[in-house]
Design a protein around this nucleic acid. Structure first.
Lengths: 230, 230
DNA sequence: GTCTATAATGAGATAGAC
DNA sequence: GTCTATCTCATTATAGAC
């Protein structure tokens, strides 16, 4: 058993390198497609050493998920809407999508993640629930800021649609457009795409603020043509 | 090589049973999670026999994809909007979501599908492109029927959002709500959820028609509470 | 067409020296 | 902490009898 377990102890340079290399690898090729041999090679170590730091692939995935949770928590502390500053909200949204890209294998390879690390199931569930709550609060905040007018009967469906678009935007790029590597433009388009759900509910003031923040089509961020080739 | 290749010849009772059993199995447990042994057991035959009909798992998946394409083509022939009959459109949407449920492993296990049967990549791509075109035509039809008013600047984003929500609704139910088995209610909610994207753009006439068709919240199909437990 | 038995592969995991 | 060498095992695929 040795150690290398105590997270409070020395976090070990190699351990961190393994985690970083594997995250890249999983993102690029898919969690289930990467073998332990490749993982070790990517980290520049031997397979035996990999097993010294993480006895099983399961434990490595769990450790990565922990980092993911921390990154999410850090991003979530900022508030989406701060009074009238929609420009700041635009930056917030883009940061969110960038984070999702950095950890996209967790979004894309859901079934594999659960199969390899079943213990993550409740934590994944908590995270998705948090996301939906996050969206709810954002809508409330925009409403209270006098930016948005959503009929009560339509709020629930709007929240769900916003969650779906945000959670699956990354995979959409891959499936529909064959995007293999993200650019800043992809990230920005994700934010713009998500914001598109709210546009029909913006009132005069909100519309003006959104235009200033570059969140409206034709302003700053262009939407891709619907029939663009891959 | 024998035969069992010629699709024009006798389609073979066993072959059909294998395909049906495997579709169920893949849907329930995930394409990558099912072994050939399980596949044979589910079809009630020996492993050797399975390999007589499909030399490789890849070929079986390709055959299933062919059936999927046929089913999609059959559903796509009907037109989403027929004049003023939105009630009929509601039924159409529900049929669409039912189809997606019947073949959900193709939506959910995308990475695995491509890994096991790389030859499907272009066919998958064609299918997703068709879907987006389908949505575009539906919007045009609703606009021409005088039901919908979508600003030109917002159309492209609406199409993309509609595609995302429809393509990932099934996976959303699993991820977010832990739904393991579909009910008619889930299917209906998907249709209602998708239609929610169009609601803010409905004019008076469209709103009335939508209410009659049970596509508006509070009428017929209830949206789930945003914070519902799994 | 269908079976039983078996081979071939490649992944994850371990042992023990350094 | 790190390496090399080895083991176990599930899974895919094949051979050949019936």
């Amino acid at each position: 058993m040795g150690m290398a377990e105590g997270r409070a102890a020395r976090p070990s340079k190699t351990r961190a390198r393994i985690l970083a290399a594997c995250r890249e690898l999983f993102n690029a090729r898919g969690l289930a497609e990467v073998t332990t041999a490749e993982m070790a090679a990517a980290a520049g170590i031997a397979e035996g050493n990999l097993h010294y730091h993480f006895q099983r692939k399961e434990q490595l995935v769990e450790a990565l998920f922990g980092e993911f949770e921390e990154a999410l928590a850090a991003t979530a502390t900022a508030d989406l809407v701060q009074g009238d500053d929609l420009r700041r909200s635009a930056g917030y949204l883009k940061g969110w999508f960038r984070l999702m890209w950095d950890w996209r294998f967790f979004y894309r390879d859901g079934p594999s993640v659960v199969r390899i690390a079943p213990s993550l199931r409740p934590r994944i569930h908590r995270l998705t629930a948090d996301g939906q709550r996050q969206i709810s609060r954002a809508i409330t905040a925009m409403r209270e800021a006098g930016i948005l007018r959503v009929p009560a009967t339509e709020t629930d469906r709007l929240v769900v649609n916003a969650w779906i678009v945000s959670a699956y935007w990354i995979d959409y790029l891959r499936t529909r457009h064959g995007v293999a590597e993200i650019t800043r433009e992809h990230v920005d388009r994700g934010a713009s795409q998500l914001f598109g759900l709210f546009v029909p509910y913006l009132d005069e003031k909100g519309r003006r603020l959104a235009a200033d923040a570059g969140l409206l089509p034709g302003e700053g961020v262009a939407a891709p043509p619907a029939s663009a080739p891959p």
